[in-house]
Amino acid sequence: MRLKKQKRHRKAVRFYTACFGFRDPFKVLCDGTFVHHLLINKITPADTQLANALGASVKIFTTRCVLAELRSLGNSYVESLNAARNLLIARCDHEKRKSAVSCITDVIGEKNSEHFFVGTQDADLRKKFQEVPGVPLIYGLRNTLFLEQPSAFQHQFVKSAEEDRSHMTKLEYKLLNVKKKNVASEEVKDSSEANEGKEDHTFGFQAMQINMRKNGGDLNDKVQFKRKRAKGPNPLSCLKKKQHGSTNKVASEKETGNGEATVRSRSRKRKRSHKSKNVSESIV
């Protein structure tokens, strides 16, 4: 059962931190009934017990009107008065003393801008704060502290606030219309400038045609642009031409030289040795 209570408390704390911007350390505003309940049921130290219930460190506050109300209740609430004097004082700006209910209501206001957790045992006050967005309520039951779950009104308030944030405000809608008008005027200006440029171009071309016709020429007779023609090779990258006369002369010289060599080789006579002749004479 204790684990389920902790889960419910963590879920409620996440709701208030995510939707209303509550931050650690949490501020708890207590009235006299809540302080008196803590003392009677010995829920002490109060800051430690509240920190365990909320899952984060806390700062406990009260008001001067609450202290004045406890003082007026007599000796039965002396201990509660002494305990409340040790708490931090929240500013209420009341010159004359008010009841604790009206004082805490004024401190919380319509939107609870100070992000207070309200600790009270007054059922009517808790029911009243259920209709105020962003007011977490803490109450005691015997020796246990409970964090009241967010009411249906608070859930509906969060849902409607999210829907409002998703739509444009009147100021944003006006700024968007002004932006659209500026863009449309710029587009019209650009298109008019483009049309003027085309008209100037066509007018100049027509004037050129008229001048050409007056001079006896025609636009089609003259070349309007220079055509690219094939160019010759780079002379520096080409080999030098060979001289055919010198090569023929060299070749003829080679041929004549070879001819003489053949003639000489043919006209050369064969040498015969006379040894065999002498041998034959001697035999005879």
Results as ranks from 00 to 15, higher is better:
L3T: 07
H9T: 04
F15K: 09
F15S: 05
A18G: 09
A18D: 12
A18Y: 10
P25I: 04
H36A: 03
H36M: 00
T48C: 11
Q49P: 06
Q49W: 09
A53W: 07
A68H: 11
L81Y: 09
N82R: 15
A100G: 03
D106S: 15
K111G: 06
S113P: 12
E114Q: 15
H115G: 02
F116K: 09
F117S: 02
K127Y: 00
R142M: 03
Q156N: 14
V158I: 07
V158F: 10
E163H: 12
E163I: 12
S166L: 15
S166W: 11
H167T: 04
H167K: 15
T169F: 05
Y173R: 14
K179P: 02
N182S: 04
E187V: 02
K189L: 00
A194L: 02
E199L: 12
T202Q: 08
F205Q: 08
F205K: 13
F205A: 08
R213W: 04
L219A: 00
R227N: 02
K231N: 03
G232I: 02
L239G: 10
K240W: 09
Q243E: 04
T247F: 10
V250R: 15
K254E: 01
E260F: 15
R268Q: 03
S273A: 10
H274V: 08
K277F: 13
S282Y: 13
